[in-house]
């Protein structure tokens, strides 16, 4: 497994209520409290339908990738549908916000990051 810091991708599922509001809000809250960089998208399904080229950008490189979205089977084939299949080398971890607690998701997303704790209060 790569020692590179993980890329994080968060899906808001903005076009439907498939992901519980409380879970997706809490996960986003934890990401925003942390000091890390992360990518967030309105809706992976919509990007897949449009075959959005940014999905390929997300997969580019050798870093581990953590995706907070929905069922891994759905996410796998959504990327495939977009023409950018997920690599099967074990560097992609899909976390399911539909049936997992927000804390468990956020802990997994932030695991091993160097800026895990709440940070970034404004400079006076």
């Amino acid at each position: 497994m790569s020692d590179l810091p993980a890329k994080i991708l968060y899906c808001r599922c903005a076009f439907a209520r498939a992901v519980p509001e409380a879970t997706k809000n809490a996960v986003l809250g934890r990401l925003c409290e942390s000091g890390i960089s992360f990518e967030s998208v309105a809706d992976l399904c919509e990007m897949s339908a449009r075959k959005d080229p940014r999905l390929a950008e997300v997969l580019a490189g050798d870093e581990p990738i953590r995706i907070a979205a929905c069922f891994p089977r759905a996410v796998k084939w959504l990327f495939h549908h977009a023409g950018t299949p997920l690599p099967d080398d074990g560097r992609v971890e899909v976390l399911n916000m539909r049936d997992t607690s927000a804390d468990a998701i956020a802990d997994a997303l932030l695991a091993g990051t160097t800026s895990h704790s709440p940070s970034n209060s404004p400079t006076p």
Partner: peptide
């Protein structure tokens, strides 16, 4: 879509 960029690790 929103990309947050910090100097810390990740993305």
């Amino acid at each position: 879509s929103v990309l947050r960029v910090t100097e810390a690790a990740g993305n």
